[in-house]
Amino acid sequence: MIIHILNGFVYGGLLYLVAIGLVLIFGIRQVVNFAHGSLFMLGAYVGYAATAIAGFWAGVVAATLVLAILGLLLDRAVFRPLQDQDPIVTLLVTFGLLLVIEDLVRTVWGKDTLTIAMPDLLSGTLRIAGEDFPVYRLFVILVAAGMGAGLTLWLKRSRIGLYVRAFASDPLTTGTQGVDTERVSAAVVALGAGFAGLAGIIAGPLLALSPAMGGSILIESFIVVVVGGFGSFSGAFVAALVIGQLQNLGIVFIPSFSTMIPFLLMMLILLWRPLGLTGRAA
């Protein structure tokens, strides 16, 4: 059972890394970013290319940085110009972006599934509860937990974190207080996209790379965001862990219904607390 719970944390951790980017971008730009799954996928492919040249750790840095820069560009070229438009326009544009990024990846890397080799340092197994458990999976849990803690500290302790929280709850007042909200927004979108890139390369040694790999994780990440409460950083963390566990334990105890569990949970949460576990009315 301990192994099943650890596996739940692994998938929950990956979901958290993707979902937190969605939360950051929604919190600041009020954009439901349909292209986020393709940013995760692009991160994996950029990481694959960099890993092939300079090794896995260079891949981690490259995927995170390249996607963060892409996030800056997206904010400048898409989210900022469209911020006064009907939200449905932005949503459609992000859906278009998803298709463009998928086609781009298909053109550059093809449709065949690719894999990223695990770094030697993390390729062994550890004996836990009498079972061999891959060290890399523990690494994924640590990365997700580390990123969660780092983000929380950054938001609570740093000046820019203060601006982000203020902007997320009242952009107008924050702007009138002299905060350069455009720069804050750009930084946050870059951070969200960077998280997607990091999740992509971290997932690389576990999941086969294909242009469609962002699709299913995006749906599950949206469920995390809805369950946690749109725009809630702590809610996303709790929801990702809960969904990761429920999905895994579902496979163990009620395999026929396991794929339905996240959707059922979302329905129940929406009925019980329409703003999510930690969501608050504006």
């Binding site: 739940g8 998938y11 496979i251």
Partner: peptide, 16 residues
Amino acid sequence: NFSALGTNDFATYIQK
């Protein structure tokens, strides 16, 4: 074990 099409993580199936 029957997994949904497009399953990302098979770890639980493997452990079973």
